[in-house]
Computed example of a mutant assay.
Amino acid sequence: MYRYEIVADARAQVDGLPAEALVDFAELISFLELTPWEGPPYRDDNPDSAMRRIVFGQAGAGLVVYVVLEPDRRVVVVSVTWIG
Rank of each mutant, 00 (worst) to 15 (best):
V67F: 14
L28W: 05
T35E: 13
D9V: 12
W37E: 06
D44F: 15
I83A: 10
D9A: 14
R52D: 01
W37Y: 06
L32G: 06
V78H: 07
L22A: 08
S49H: 04
V76Y: 02
P18K: 07
L17H: 06
P36Q: 06
G62R: 07
L17W: 04
W82L: 05
A61F: 14
Q13A: 15
F25N: 05
D72R: 14
G39W: 02
V68I: 12
P71R: 12
I83D: 13
E5G: 02
F25S: 03
V80T: 06
R52C: 03
S79A: 11
P18V: 02
D44V: 15
P41H: 08
V67S: 11
R74E: 04
G39M: 04
F25C: 05
S30Q: 14
M51E: 10
I6W: 02
F56M: 08
G60M: 13
P36D: 05
F25G: 02
D24E: 15
I6M: 12
R73F: 07
A10D: 11
L63A: 03
E27H: 08
S49P: 01
P18W: 07
E33S: 07
S30W: 02
V55Q: 08
M51W: 08
T81Q: 13
F31S: 13
P40M: 09
Y2V: 01
Y2F: 11
P41E: 06
L32A: 10
I54S: 00
Y2Q: 04
L63D: 09
D15V: 02
P71V: 05
P41M: 09
L22V: 12
E5C: 02
I6D: 02
W82P: 01
T35P: 00
V80P: 00
Y4E: 09
A21S: 14
M51H: 05
D24R: 08
L28D: 04
P47W: 11
V7C: 00
V67G: 01
D9M: 09
L22C: 03
V14N: 03
V55K: 10
G16W: 08
E38Q: 15
E5F: 13
I29T: 12
E5A: 10
Y2H: 07
S30F: 04
V65E: 09
F56L: 09
A26R: 07
R73V: 02
D72M: 14
A12F: 08
G62I: 09
E27C: 02
R52P: 00
L32W: 10
V55T: 15
V55P: 01
D72P: 00
A26H: 02
D15W: 03
T35Q: 12
D15C: 01
I54P: 00
G62F: 08
L32C: 09
S79W: 12
A50P: 05
R53E: 09
F56E: 03
L28R: 05
I6F: 03
A50D: 14
A59P: 00
Q13E: 15
W37R: 07
R11C: 08
E33M: 05
A26D: 10
